Every structure is written in structure tokens, then in C-alpha cells.
Amino acid sequence: MTGPHALKPFLLAFPGPLRDRLVAAVLSGEKTATTGLLVEYEIEKEELPEAGERSALIDSDGREVAVVEITEVRVLPLGEADLRLALDEGEGFLSVADWREAHERFWHGEEMREALGDPGFVVDDGTMLVVERFRVVETLSPDVS
């Protein structure tokens, strides 16, 4: 490995309390999947990640805290999200309905709508998602200045 600084950032949510909770869930091993919107990749002209790709997990302070390896990437419509995904997201969801409610709240939030450049953005059963499954391969010591 050439060092964590050579890795693409692995960003969960936006900096703040939600990202802090998600990063902690990854580090504890509770969170082994994450779900994003395909439209985010299209807007940013970013290629989808591939299995085997490694990235640096970034905390709310912009520090690299772990190296994660993608184990699976799937594109599917929101209506096909299942209980396994809800559980693997590691946020305590016990049903697909709870998972969906929390994700819709995030995707319909002001920060996401601003990031997408669409103040009226809404998801429905046909909205395409990118589901990434991953594992932590290394925990990094945060740089303390």
C-alpha cells in the first residue's frame, strides 16, 4: 500500500453529528453497507466504485480514520431495498420502512437538495440507488497537530 493519503476519500453523509455516528458504526463493525443516490455520481461525473477498491474513511474533521475495502457494489431501485440492507447499514433499523424513512429524510434534506442543485428533489420507488458493501481493512491513528 502506498499510504492512506493516496486513497480516494470515503465520505458518509455530511460533516456533523450524522457523519460522526456513521463513522463510529463503521469503526465498531456495525455498519458494513451504505446507500447513495445514483444521480449523485452522475452529477459529479464520478465512476461507481468497484469491488476491491480501497478508500480512506473520513470523519467530520476531515481526518482519515480507517481504510475500507469495497466488497460489493449494486445499483437497484429504491423499491427493491431489503431488510438485509437495512440491517447492514448499522444504524439500528429493524425494518425496511424505518430505513427508508430515515434515508428519505436525509435525501429530502436541504443539504442534499443543495448538493444536487434541485430544491424540489424527491425520491420514489424507482429512484436508482448505489449500495456499497465494505469492510475495514485498517484503522488509522488520527493526525493530531
Rank of each mutant, 00 (worst) to 15 (best):
P4A: 15
P4R: 06
P4T: 10
H5C: 01
H5R: 04
H5N: 10
A6K: 12
A6P: 00
L7N: 09
L7H: 09
L7Q: 09
K8Y: 08
K8W: 07
K8M: 13
P9C: 10
P9W: 09
P9D: 12
F10R: 06
F10A: 12
L11C: 09
L12A: 11
L12T: 13
F14W: 06
F14A: 08
P15R: 13
P17A: 14
P17W: 08
R19P: 08
D20E: 14
R21Y: 01
R21V: 03
L22H: 09
A24Y: 01
A25T: 11
V26N: 08
L27A: 08
L27R: 11
S28Y: 06
E30A: 15
K31V: 02
A33N: 05
T34Q: 04
T35I: 14
T35D: 00
T35A: 15
L37P: 11
L38N: 02
E42S: 05
K45H: 14
K45F: 01
K45G: 11
E46T: 10
L48E: 05
P49R: 15
P49S: 13
G52K: 11
E53C: 03
R54I: 00
R54C: 10
R54N: 07
S55T: 07
A56K: 04
A56E: 02
I58C: 00
S60V: 02
S60R: 01
D61E: 14
D61C: 04
G62V: 01
G62F: 01
V65A: 02
V65S: 04
V65E: 04
A66S: 05
A66D: 02
V67N: 02
V67F: 04
E69Q: 14
I70T: 15
T71Q: 08
T71P: 02
V73D: 02
V73E: 05
R74P: 00
P77R: 05
E80H: 12
A81F: 12
L83C: 06
R84P: 11
R84H: 13
L85E: 11
A86F: 08
L87P: 01
G90A: 05
E91V: 07
G92A: 12
F93S: 12
F93A: 13
L94Q: 14
L94E: 15
A97E: 15
A97R: 14
D98F: 07
W99S: 03
W99C: 09
E101W: 10
H103E: 07
H103K: 06
E104A: 11
E104Q: 14
F106V: 13
W107K: 03
W107H: 05
H108T: 08
G109Q: 02
E111S: 14
E111G: 01
M112W: 13
E114F: 07
A115N: 06
A115P: 05
L116M: 11
L116F: 06
G117Q: 02
G117N: 03
D118C: 01
G120P: 00
G120I: 00
G120Y: 10
G120N: 13
V123I: 12
V123Y: 01
T127R: 08
T127V: 07
T127P: 08
T127A: 06
T127C: 06
T127H: 03
V130H: 05
V131I: 12
F134W: 05
F134V: 08
F134E: 07
V137Q: 07
E138S: 11
L140F: 04
S141E: 14
P142Q: 01
